[in-house]
Write a protein that binds this DNA or RNA. Structure first.
Lengths: 196, 196
DNA sequence: GGCTAAAACGGACCGCGGTCCGTTTGTATT
DNA sequence: AATACAAACGGACCGCGGTCCGTTTTAGCC
């Protein structure tokens, strides 16, 4: 009979019904988002579809943004996996510069595809926190690999910034710049920053 | 008696009461925002303070975001003026590189100071549209002046992206990076992009 | 100064995000 | 199995952003 005392900050064990509901809610939310589009999905609808009360939604996800962030997170996780252990050039195996460029393109497309969900998620639910820090870490690693020196965390951020949805949307929707040109522009930026 | 017919897309003359009200609303909004902070200001409050009906607010500014954008715009205009015709190094008179660096620092600080208003304004009311295109234009001009070649619109965007509030907030609030370091990092970025 | 069409006004009204709190359910203990 | 306590539940409720539409004001014209 060990573990009478919880370890330092064990994240509090989740009760069975809670787990079941969380899953039901996420599934329902995903289904609704896919069928009617993000901004036609209300919290009450999700609650109904999942067969739970509204209060339960907010208990688990804090806010609408939080819920959307959670939904988004599902696909984000898949994407991260393909970066970490997928096939090259996105995954390991290709030379660093190729990986970096592939990474940028992939992220650019992903952000555009997930656009509506992404801004429904806002910066809540720490989606952006987790996502950003993963991306930043990865870019930092590749830059080091490339022998770049300087303030790597900031350089990584600078490289990633133009891929943020806010910036992309301005360019794609307002200025009607085609995606290919954005990719080319980003490649150029990277080469300038990396040097040589 | 000329101008019986309105010119092509004359912006529709504004009626006297409308003008008076618009001004009253903006003044009221500014006053309230300054005294209680952006997110404690409701549309109804503003309407009351301005002595108009709620409908009038929405008629003129479309949404809460639109109103906030309009308020923000006031100060933005002042800032733009100091870029165009203020004292160097921000204004004209200094060598391009100095101007560029001054521009970045100034914008960085401005974004952080106006943070709450800026994200209350969202991307509505085309605040971000107008602001972005001004900044982009200016940076483009300085880059050309510096003899940079390449896709200038995209390079300008890339340089400006790390100054966007979304990015800054992540760094300042989450990662606790001091502003001076951000400035230094940005300078580094600019030098790499400009080259030489 | 009347008259009229167009524009602006304002407040009742609606829907949704978010909270609150009395009730139910799960789990650990004996 | 019975008990007890914490945690989860759910729906009534609230406030605010946003809309709608009947009423009022303005401005041009005779």
């Amino acid at each position: 009979m060990n573990r009478l005392l919880p370890l330092a900050d064990e994240p509090a064990p989740e009760r069975a019904d809670a787990a079941r509901n969380r899953e039901a809610i996420l599934a329902a939310a995903l289904r609704l988002v896919e069928s009617r589009g993000v901004d036609c999905v209300t919290m009450e609808t999700v609650a109904a579809e999942a067969g739970v009360g509204k209060g339960t939604l907010f208990r688990r996800f804090n806010s609408r943004e939080g819920l959307m962030a959670a939904v988004l997170n599902e696909s984000e996780t898949v994407w991260q996996a393909s970066v970490i252990s997928g096939p090259p050039p996105l995954g390991p195996g290709a030379p660093p510069m190729e990986r970096l460029l592939a990474f940028g393109h992939s992220r650019l497309r992903a952000n555009l595809v997930g656009a509506s969900l992404i801004d429904a998620a806002g910066r809540a639910g720490q989606r952006s926190v987790a996502a950003m820090s993963f991306a930043n870490l990865h870019v930092r690693y590749l830059l080091r690999e490339l022998g770049v020196d300087g303030d790597l965390p900031l350089l990584a951020t600078a490289i990633l910034a133009p891929l943020e949805l806010v910036v992309l949307e301005q360019q794609v929707e307002r200025e009607r710049i085609p995606v290919e040109r954005l990719e080319a522009g980003w490649d150029d930026l990277v080469r300038r920053v990396v040097g040589g």
